[in-house]
Nucleic acid binder design. Structure first.
Length: 407
DNA sequence: AGCCTTTGACCAGCG
DNA sequence: TCGCTGGTCAAAGGC
């Protein structure tokens, strides 16, 4: 997944911390948000939902319904204001998720990895298809989101506020009529308003969304980094996401913190068969490891294996092997290798690391990466069917390492 | 054979 | 100057 945040010289880290604490306890979909960002919101939420379908289809069906209802109501109101002759007689639509098995959804490209395919999002967008000023299909919606001036506003606002999450309770934000307390999930401050993804959707889920990626990174990775760097940079499966830039110097450093994994990804971590590919497109060689003083964390040092490439990365892991921070240093001066010799798109540099960061990234604009992703996903699918025989070498290695870690 | 990880030693910056 | 710490080197061994 990729977040593009063009922050200039800002200290994103500090800024993020500030914003995080400054986030209001409650937020809601106000009119402005619905006006300006509903297509994008649909896109984001839908994609997030799609990615969470393994966990609780019912919950996400409810979510989709909430989202749809909120937007539908809003647009109905808006339309009745602008057009007195509006019939408004249509009943509020409901959404039903197609009874597709997760595996099919996930690996057939239905979750947005290989382009945007029909799914819940289409259902949501279809809800508004009788409004001529709205995007009628998912792809149109995507295109509209990307093309609209509001998209620029989204990017611009991203300059103001990195993505963060808030723990604890909060009101339902997707359905303005609902005042029931629910745990609040991801919140993206979006002056003059904001939106929050309800419980069950981790920040990572949203951040990991290719839609989100598309919104925030149409062209270039963060801080002038390549997509591949950024992909690996933003691990984003924790409850907080931290992005730091040291762009004032030629040397670029980015940091991602992953204090903890949300439950769905914890299980994905344990159940490797559900894991996503660990690959940022580059090959890495580990050249050192240090125990972080005064803590159980250990720090691993990696170099890009390209002889002419100065890029290094540090991965900080907790005792249980979870990646808590990934720090990239430098910028690749070459394209990612087309073929990784070692194991189906994985690479050894991130094998020990098998960065969850990398695992949750999604395709970027690169066809190569998309292809790589699909290939790896396929491997994973096969594992689900026959774990014994069809593991990639890298997965075997990872397992071995994890076993070692446990002992 | 080639590439990788591991790991102890070494080096440099800093207080 | 010394000790601490982070970062890197390089030999050894594994896959």
């Amino acid at each position: 997944m990729l977040i593009t945040v063009r922050r200039g010289q800002h200290d994103l880290d500090a800024d993020y911390r500030h914003k995080r604490t400054a986030l209001p306890p409650n937020s809601l979909f106000n009119s402005s948000i619905l006006d300006n960002f509903s297509p994008r919101l649909e896109l984001l939420v839908s994609d997030a939902v799609k990615r969470q379908m393994t966990k609780d289809d019912e919950k996400h069906q409810k979510l989709l319904t909430d989202v749809g209802s909120a937007l539908y109501d809003h647009r109905q109101q808006k339309q009745s204001l602008t057009s007195k002759s509006s019939t408004g007689g249509a009943s509020r639509p409901t959404i039903s998720l197609p009874p597709r098995p997760f595996g099919e959804m996930f690996y057939s490209g239905g979750v947005g990895f290989s382009g945007f395919s029909p799914g819940p999002m289409t259902l949501v967008s279809n809800m508004f298809s009788d409004h001529s000023d709205e995007f009628k299909s998912f792809s149109q919606l995507v295109a509209g989101a990307m093309a609209s001036p509001a998209a620029a506003a989204v990017v611009a606002s991203a300059h103001q506020t990195p993505v963060s999450s808030v723990g604890g309770g909060g009101d339902s934000l997707l359905d303005p009529r609902s005042k029931q307390n629910r745990p609040t999930g991801l919140m993206i401050t979006q002056p003059p308003g904001m939106f929050t993804v309800p419980p069950g959707l981790s920040p990572a889920t949203l951040l990991d969304s290719p839609s989100f990626f598309g919104l925030f990174s149409p062209i270039q990775g963060s801080f002038g980094m390549t997509h591949q760097q950024a992909l690996a940079q933003v691990t984003a499966q924790g409850n907080t996401v931290q992005i730091q830039s040291g762009s004032s110097t030629q040397q670029q450093t980015s940091v991602t913190e992953v204090p903890s994994l949300p439950a769905p990804y914890q299980s994905m971590r344990v159940g490797r068969s559900l894991r996503m590919p660990a690959d940022d497109g580059y090959n890495w060689r580990k050249y050192g490891q240090k125990q972080v003083k005064g803590s159980d964390f250990r720090r691993s040092y990696y170099k890009c294996t390209n002889p002419a490439c100065p890029v290094k990365k540090k991965i900080v892991r907790s005792v249980d092997g979870q990646v808590t921070k990934t720090i990239y240093k430098g910028q690749h001066n070459h394209e990612p290798p087309q073929n990784n010799k070692r194991g189906g798109g994985n690479n050894n540099g991130s094998s020990e690391s098998s960065d969850i960061a990398n695992q949750f990234k999604t395709s970027n604009n690169s066809l190569n990466k998309s292809k790589r992703y699909q290939e790896t996903s396929q491997v994973t699918t096969t594992e689900q069917k026959s774990e014994a025989n069809l593991e990639s070498a890298s997965v075997k290695r990872e397992r071995s390492e994890e076993a070692t870690e446990r002992n």
